[in-house]
Amino acid sequence: MTTGALHVLRPGRAALGRLLLDAGALSPEWLPVFAAVDRDDFLPDVIWPWDMEHRAWLDDPGRSWPV
Score class of each variant (00 low, 15 high):
A56M: 08
D45L: 14
E53Q: 07
W50S: 06
D41N: 12
D38H: 02
L26V: 13
R55T: 04
W30M: 12
L31M: 14
A25V: 11
I47T: 11
L26R: 03
W48I: 00
V37P: 00
A25C: 11
A35L: 15
A25E: 09
R55E: 11
D40A: 15
F42V: 06
V37R: 06
D41V: 07
F34R: 10
L31I: 03
E29G: 05
E53N: 03
W30T: 01
W50G: 02
D59Q: 15
R55H: 10
I47S: 08
E53I: 03
W30S: 14
V33T: 05
P32H: 11
P32Q: 11
W50H: 04
L26T: 05
V46Q: 10
G24T: 08
S27K: 15
W50V: 04
D41P: 00
D40G: 15
P49L: 08
I47R: 13
W57K: 06
D41R: 03
D38K: 05
D41Y: 06
V46R: 15
F34Y: 14
D51S: 03
A35I: 10
W30C: 06
D40R: 09
W48R: 02
L43E: 09
D51E: 07
D45V: 13
M52R: 12
R39N: 15
W48Y: 07
P49D: 11
L31R: 13
F42S: 02
A25H: 09
A36Y: 02
A56P: 00
E29T: 14
A36G: 06
D59M: 14
L26H: 07
D38C: 09
